[in-house]
C-alpha cells in the first residue's frame, strides 16, 4: 500500500461486510439527476470531481482535484507512492468513510449526484461502484458462493445461477471452473482468484469498477489475462484502475490521470498523449523515470 490511506481488508462493491436494507437513495436520486442528460452530443462523465480535497487529520492527501471520468472507458491513475491515487479511488465508493481522521470536501459525483451528500447510502453506492483489490481476496467459500455472495446480502433478485454463470463468463473464468463450482475459491491459482474477485465485483452489475493495482500480485501470464479482461470489461463498465505499472497503464487504458506528490492531479488526458507527449515537464520527468 503506497498511499496515506491505511490498508483495510474490508470488502467493497458487492462484498459489503455489513449490508443494510436502507433505501438506495443514490439510485433514486441519480435517476432523477440524469434524466434527459443524454441529449447532448458529449456524454456527461460518469464520475466528476470538482475542488475535491481529502485530509487525514492535518495532512492533505488530495488537493483540489478536478476530473471528468468518461463512461465505458478504462481510466488509469498513476503516480508515485503517497501521491493520493488510491485515496482518490477510495473516495469514489466512500471507502475512506471508515477512517475516522479522513475528511473530504468538495464535490465527487456519480452521474451528477454528489456521493458525499447526506442522503447517499454508502452500501447502495458500493453496489453501483464495485471494487477489486491488489491481493486476490476470495472468501473461504465455494466458487459459486463467492460470486453469489453480493447478490444474496444485497437481496438482489433474479436467477442467481444465471448471474453467477454470466459473471464468471464475463470474468473469463467460466471455462476453467464451470465443472467445480462447489470447490473452494481458495483452491484456485492467484490469477484465477483475482478473476473470481472480479466476477464477484461485477455480479451485482455495478456501473463502475474500481481496481487498486489488480495485477501487481500476479505472474506475467495471469497479469496478461487480467489486462485483457479489463479491456473487455470496459465495454460494459466504467473502469478506474490505480497502477504503479506505467506500461500496464499505457497498454490497457484509454485515459490516464497523473497524480504527483502533494495529492495534485497534474495532467489528465488520452493515454497515448500522456505517454508520447505530456504537456507538463513534471509528468514527463515522472513517466520517464527522471524522478520518483
Amino acid at each position: 500500500m503506497s498511499d496515506n490511506t491505511p490498508q483495510t481488508d474490508e470488502p467493497a462493491g458487492g462484498e459489503t461486510a455489513d449490508p443494510t436494507n436502507d433505501d438506495m437513495l443514490v439510485e433514486t436520486d441519480v435517476a432523477a439527476a440524469t434524466s434527459g442528460s443524454t441529449a447532448g452530443a458529449t456524454p456527461d462523465p460518469v464520475i466528476r470531481s470538482r475542488d475535491l480535497d481529502v485530509f487525514y487529520g492535518e495532512e492533505q492527501a488530495l488537493d483540489s482535484i478536478d476530473i471528468d471520468i468518461p463512461e465505458n472507458r478504462v481510466t488509469a491513475i498513476i503516480g508515485p507512492s503517497g501521491c493520493g491515487k488510491s485515496t482518490f479511488l477510495r473516495c469514489i465508493n466512500r471507502m475512506n468513510d471508515r477512517i475516522d481522521a479522513c475528511r473530504v470536501t468538495g464535490e465527487l459525483s456519480l452521474r451528477g449526484k454528489n456521493v458525499y451528500d447526506d442522503d447517499v447510502d454508502p452500501v447502495a453506492l458500493r453496489r453501483r461502484v464495485g471494487m477489486v483489490f491488489q491481493e486476490p481476496n476470495p472468501f473461504p467459500k465455494s466458487i459459486y458462493d463467492n460470486v453469489a455472495y453480493g447478490l444474496e446480502i444485497q437481496n438482489i433478485e433474479g436467477d442467481h445461477d444465471e448471474i453467477v454463470e454470466q459473471s464468471l463468463k464475463r470474468a473469463a473464468l467460466w471455462d476453467e471452473v464451470s465443472h467445480q463450482l462447489d470447490s473452494s475459491g481458495l483452491e484456485l491459482s492467484g490469477g484465477q482468484q483475482q478473476r473470481l474477485c472480479i466476477a464477484r465485483a461485477i455480479a451485482p452489475d455495478p456501473e463502475v469498477l474500481l481496481m487498486d493495482e489488480p495485477a501487481s500480485a500476479l505472474d506475467p501470464v495471469a497479469t496478461s489475462q487480467v489486462e485483457d479482461l479489463i479491456e473487455e470489461l470496459a465495454e460494459d463498465y466504467t473502469v478506474v484502475i490505480v497502477t504503479h505499472n506505467m506500461q500496464q497503464a499505457a497498454r490497457i487504458s484509454d485515459k490516464t490521470a497523473v497524480f504527483l506528490t502533494g495529492g495534485e492531479l497534474v495532467e489528465f488526458g488520452d493515454t497515448d498523449q500522456i505517454f508520447e507527449n505530456p504537456e507538463h515537464q513534471r509528468v514527463e520527468d515522472y513517466i520517464t523515470g527522471k524522478f520518483g
Binding site: E276, N277, E284, T288
Partner: peptide, 9 residues
C-alpha cells in the same frame, strides 16, 4: 527500458 514520452521520441 520501455521508454515513453520524450525518451521514446
Amino acid at each position: 527500458q520501455q521508454p515513453v514520452a520524450g525518451d521514446l521520441r
